[in-house]
Structure formats: structure tokens, C-alpha cells
């Protein structure tokens, strides 16, 4: 996972609340064998509506999603996070997140910043008055900046630390790389090896 400090990019105002993970990615896409390539699955049902915000060319290349409260509730599918990441989002700001979704996000390097409802409204208005405007999400300072507007957000300390350090579970284990390597050096020579292929 890459270290996350700040991200600057086009912001998308998603004026909806209680966006559950079934909406973020419909169940029909879960049969796939990949963890990538879900960009077309993101909000797939809503995107069939030409007036849906992501169908507006002004928001092409978006990296920050600003959504209403209770974003990511419902089913635990990690695919919801994969789809947002694949589409290009690095951060979602919302007044409230579904717990499981927020946990899954931390594992996949997606920042979930909790903002006040008033600030959410301010960001929406600013983005809608200038579609395609960029905003900056600063994880060190824990705030988002859009022009003169500076909006603080909350994020779990441990998740923030892992994101700043760029650590996923595997990366955390790899902090013990030396211990793993030392352990490997002590392993007996008779232990099973799948390679090279042997025929008795």
C-alpha cells in the first residue's frame, strides 16, 4: 500500500444519504475472479441514469467523493471498496460511515474522513457551483481544502497511522521481515519443498 499524506483532485458531490454497499456495487458483480477491474461496477445501477453525477464529464478523473450521511452501510462486501478504488477514488468524505465499510477501506488505502453535516453542505454547494473543481484531502492535518474553505475531518488514529505509513496487514507483518528471514534460516532441510518437482 502506498503512503497516504495528501491527495488533490476533482471532487464529486454525491447528494444522497444512506448509500449502502448494494448501491455502491450490485451483487451481480461479486462472481468475478478479480479484485481489480470493478470500475464499471461502481454505482452500476445509478450510472444507467444519464443525469447521475458520475456521468457528467466535468467530473472525469474524480478522486474525492463527498457523500451524505451513512455511506457504505449494509453488506460487508469488500468489493465496494475495490470498486471505489478502481474508479480512482482515494478519499470519501461523509458525515457518517458504515462500520464495516470503514474497516474495509482502511485495509485498501481508501481514506474515510468524517465531516459535519454543515461542512458537507458547504462542500456540495462549492463543488456544484464550479463542477470539476479540485479539492485537497490532507491526512496529516486532518482537513480538506477547497479554495478558501477548510473543513476538518475525523479518522481513527490507528487507521490514520497505518495509512500515513502505507501499511496494510501484509505490510505490518513484513515489518517482521528480519524475524521471518531468521526463522527461515533455522528451518530443517528435510521440511517439504514443492520445487524442484521430484519423482521418487
Amino acid at each position: 500500500m502506498e503512503k497516504f499524506t495528501t491527495v488533490t483532485g476533482v471532487g464529486v458531490p454525491l447528494r444522497r444519504s444512506a448509500v449502502d454497499t448494494d448501491q455502491i456495487i450490485p451483487a451481480v458483480f461479486l462472481k468475478r475472479v478479480t479484485k481489480t477491474g470493478f470500475e464499471d461496477a461502481l454505482f452500476a445501477n445509478w450510472r444507467q441514469d444519464p443525469t447521475f453525477v458520475l456521468n457528467d464529464d466535468a467530473y472525469a478523473g474524480a478522486r474525492v467523493l463527498v457523500a451524505g450521511p451513512n455511506f457504505g452501510t449494509g453488506s460487508s462486501r469488500e468489493h465496494a471498496v475495490w470498486a471505489l478504488r478502481d474508479y480512482g477514488f482515494d478519499a470519501v468524505l461523509s458525515p457518517k460511515f458504515g462500520d464495516i465499510f470503514r474497516g474495509n477501506s482502511g485495509k485498501q488505502g481508501l481514506v474515510t474522513g468524517q465531516i459535519s453535516e454543515a461542512d458537507c453542505e458547504l462542500l456540495w454547494s462549492a463543488m456544484e457551483s464550479q463542477p470539476g473543481i479540485e479539492l485537497t484531502v490532507d491526512l496529516i492535518e486532518r482537513h480538506a481544502v477547497l479554495g478558501d474553505l477548510v473543513v476538518p475531518f475525523d479518522i481513527d488514529d490507528y487507521v490514520r497511522w497505518r495509512l500515513l505509513e502505507g501499511l496494510d496487514d501484509i505490510a505490518l507483518t513484513l515489518r517482521n521481515e528480519q524475524a521471518i528471514t531468521d526463522f527461515e534460516a533455522s528451518r530443517a532441510s528435510w521440511l517439504p519443498k514443492t520445487l524442484p518437482v521430484r519423482h521418487a
Partner: peptide
Amino acid sequence: LLYIDLHLVHEVTSPQAFDGLRVAGR
């Protein structure tokens, strides 16, 4: 943290795991 001596893989539960490695360049 436990060392794993033997890892058996089949087609159903591995695709997203390989993809994860690919994404992280591991």
C-alpha cells in the same frame, strides 16, 4: 506470527489473492 510450511492453492479462493499481490507489486 506463525510460519507456514506448506501452502496449497486451488482455483476458487485464490484469484483475488493473486490480484492483491499484483496491485501491491509483491
